[in-house]
Design a protein around this nucleic acid. Sequence first.
RNA 1: GGCCCGGUCGUCUAGUGGUUAGGAUGCUGCCCUUUCAAGGCGGAGGUCGCGGGUUCAAGUCCCGUCCGGGCUACCA
Length: 520
Amino acid sequence: MSVRVRFAPSPTGLLHVGALRTVLFDYLFARGRGGVNILRIEDTDRTRYNPDSEAEFVETLRWVGIDFDEGPHIGGPHAPYRQSERKEAGIYAREIQKLLDNGSAYKAFDTSEELDEMRELQQINKMATGYFGGKWRDATPAEVADAEGEGKAYVIRLKIPRDKTIVLHDLIRGRVEWDSNVIDDPVLIKADGMPTYHFAAMVDDHLMGITHILRGEEWIPSAPKHIALFEAFGWTPPIFVHCPVIVGKDGKKLSKRHGATRVLDYAAQGFMPQSLKNFIALIGWSPGEDREVLTEEELISLFDLDRLQPSPGRFDLEKLQWLSGHAIRALPTEELLDKVIDFVAFDYAREFHQAEVSEEEGGSAEMEKRMARWASLELLAARAKMDRSFALQCVTLEQERVTTLADFGEACEFFLVDQPRMDPKAVEKWFGQPHVPKLFDAIVAHCESGQDCSVAGFEQLLRTFQTENEIDKLGPIVHPTRVALTGKTFGPGLFELMNVLGPARIVARIHSAKSLIGLN
RNA sequence: GGCCCGGUCGUCUAGUGGUUAGGAUGCUGCCCUUUCAAGGCGGAGGUCGCGGGUUCAAGUCCCGUCCGGGCUACCA
């Protein structure tokens, strides 16, 4: 039987990294087995419905490079793929009738006040809370008819069999069992006629021929209800795969406190999809053989449900950063520049860098940083348009020094502006030495006299200056020059950087450096 | 409270009765070098949550225990 899996988010908000991991596994598993990957929207809760959510899912998944074979956006043999539409099509009404007819579901007319009261009583008596029958599980047809006649609202519940052992065979955790007497009767159809998750998801999984249900481990406690439901229908359940969750640094559920949770925020911060996928896949799964840096193809061919781990994993941003830097270094420079240009054209990245930043994420200081970063990124993209080969040289020189696409703006900034921002500490440290004025003059003279401005030419210039002035190390020559030209004490090789900058910019910068120390 | 899941260096992990418990990240030292990176080579970091058992032999099997997490809605 060929593999059919589904990602079934409920459209209540953003697509976060925890959910991404589940879809990633779906996708990797389906693609590696020549299977089918399905997107289904579980919009059965009208109160929490968010109309922008589905577009967010589709957009995010497209960015990350996870595609589907069937779904609301592309159709398919089991359409519709939105549960609200499936409800309108009468699918759930048809299926629930089967259960009502065979006696495994019943109508319950309890009011929410009555249910609250029941739970309160159960808590006081330290009993398990839940609906274990009430007066409606075994009500006579006459009682039900009366209540319906009075026009009372009702829900339809599943009649969980009593005195049985319900067994879950989970692919990751093995056999898990429950005494059916501790499982309460779940609502299948709400009073408004909408199905609950329990009902809609399982009915759809069966109807759509889903072979493996991949979902978060928070679903384990409701698995017995789902198994009982399949039994009530007489259907064979799919294989359950309860994936471990991703948690924050403190072992608690991932939240804003731990950094970005929205997948698109990682896109906006300049991480490339492949790095994110590589990183996320490695939480809870490993290919063995100590392999970690994997291409898309390797991920797909190596991925296997058998190697999933049961324990929750923490989200380690530093490892993502390493993977990201690694991916950037592996890219041919032409391609890398294109990615940077695309990144600057990416609407959400711009919005992210220009948006208000909440206090817990760093407040106005962080916001200023982001805006500055974005400004320098736009400068780079603009330059690339006018003079691609210049931008390419800048990117090449910074390639091994950055971890995300977003880092290129700041890294390349000194190449792009008229006058770089000077680090006052660097100025103080390196401009005071006695040979510096003479050094600056030598550089200006070299540039103005049209001498060799290749990498080797600049190297020779500075090395000659060193020997002529009997300075025992190259550092005292390189550092002041670097500060004068870039404003910083770190960056690409000086000779390479001078070569890219060219004589005109060098002369201008040396002049302003001189005026900074009162020499002009 | 009840039910369920989990527990190997800080973190991600390899490991399915016999290994000096391996790799990666992070930290750190050295090399390279004009700086910062990158790269190369090292180092520290683990009483495999704890206690019992089974066994010649236990991270691996069994029991107990502790800690962490989840669920306990007409949310998903």
